[in-house]
Amino acid sequence: MRKFLAVSAALAVLVAGCRGTGPDASAASDGPIKIMVGGIDKVIYLPAKLTEQLGGFQAEGLNVQLLTEPSGATAENVLIAGDVQGVVGFYDHTIDLQTKGKCITSVVQLADVPGEVEIVAAGKASSIKAPADFKGRKMGVTSPGSSTDFLTQYLATKGGLTSADYTTVKAGAGQTFIAAIDNGGIDAGMTTDPTAAKLVSTGKGKVLLDMRTEQGAKQALGGLYPASSLYMDCAWVQSHPEQVQKLANAFVKTLRWIKGHSAEEIAAKMPADYAAGDPQLYAKAVHDSIGMFNGDGLMKEDGAKNVLEVLSQFSPNVKGKKDQVDLSKTYTTQFTAKVAG
């Protein structure tokens, strides 16, 4: 019996040793890397699915499984629970979570601007022309406590209002947001492409504020507001540097690919069902939003400071704790800076 156990132990060690050899060993030993996307068909998170479509994960020897939740706030909860290793969502969650004692860091910053638009129902466009006109209105956000909620509060403040001056409505995204515009559930709301493109093309909505470009974001928010990112638990990043570097390689190469191709070429690489039966409209949605992606995956320090400034005013978790937040722990450029040209 002792001899059998000794042989079994030796075999286990041998198998473990073999498992640790080869270029993809570190990625393969832990199984698939699960990444939750806060709405995988949203153009603001397009680099995640596009990387998969281009074979970027496979080229790096990674086994990545992309999952989706409609809200970034929901996606972060899945990460905290340990059910996934990363989230493609808004950077501001890393700051918010730090005030709750969680260390979450952005390892690839996909965009320097939100990529969001404030859409007004066509019938209300003549009376809602600026954030000051939010007063007494029903304002749609993805969900309470989401990035769109904080940004809406910030815009209202610039218009001389507070969140008590309007009604916050959970409008979700995609069809639920469109339905809220259709049935009068909201007078205006913050959303992204392709939802924005669908509302504008059908005449159901008009763009009030456009934060899909650097110029538009600075006009609406007073500066850059880094948003779409790949963020992960700090402990996982520290214990899996090889996998994180490979993820950074894959994502940055996709960002570079985006900069070198047209909206039509990008749209053609995406799953056909993302176009919802209208490839031309989807290509337009991509065209209107691709300017948000930065091309290098690097965080801009001033942008991170601006996000903290906004959250310190409107996030219940960050209010009064601005000086306690260590921004250097909310993002890192150590991986994206190493991606070969």
Rank of each mutant, 00 (worst) to 15 (best):
M139P: 01
K129W: 07
D149M: 05
F57A: 11
A283D: 04
A48M: 12
L199T: 00
K3D: 15
F335G: 00
A276K: 10
A156P: 05
V37S: 08
V207D: 02
V237T: 07
G172D: 11
N317H: 15
E265D: 11
T68Q: 04
K138V: 06
I35E: 01
K246I: 09
T191R: 06
K100R: 15
K135F: 00
L281M: 12
G136S: 03
G303N: 10
L281I: 12
K124A: 13
D273E: 14
Q58G: 10
D233E: 14
F335L: 06
A267V: 10
D288M: 08
V78I: 13
G222H: 10
D92W: 04
M1T: 12
F57R: 03
G61A: 08
D165L: 14
G320R: 09
Q85W: 13
K319W: 14
C234K: 05
E264W: 01
D30G: 11
G303Q: 02
L230F: 12
Q98D: 06
D165V: 11
E309N: 14
G222A: 05
D210H: 08
H93S: 14
A180H: 11
V87A: 10
L62C: 14
A220G: 02
V252D: 01
T332W: 09
M270Y: 04
S315G: 03
A25L: 04
I119G: 00
I33W: 04
G295N: 07
P70L: 08
G20L: 06
G86W: 02
A272L: 13
S328A: 14
G56L: 08
I178K: 06
M36V: 14
A48K: 05
L62Y: 13
K135A: 15
E52I: 04
G320A: 06
D296N: 15
L308P: 08
I104R: 03
S289R: 02
I80P: 00
K49R: 13
G22E: 04
S143T: 10
T332R: 00
E116L: 06
A275F: 05
T336K: 03
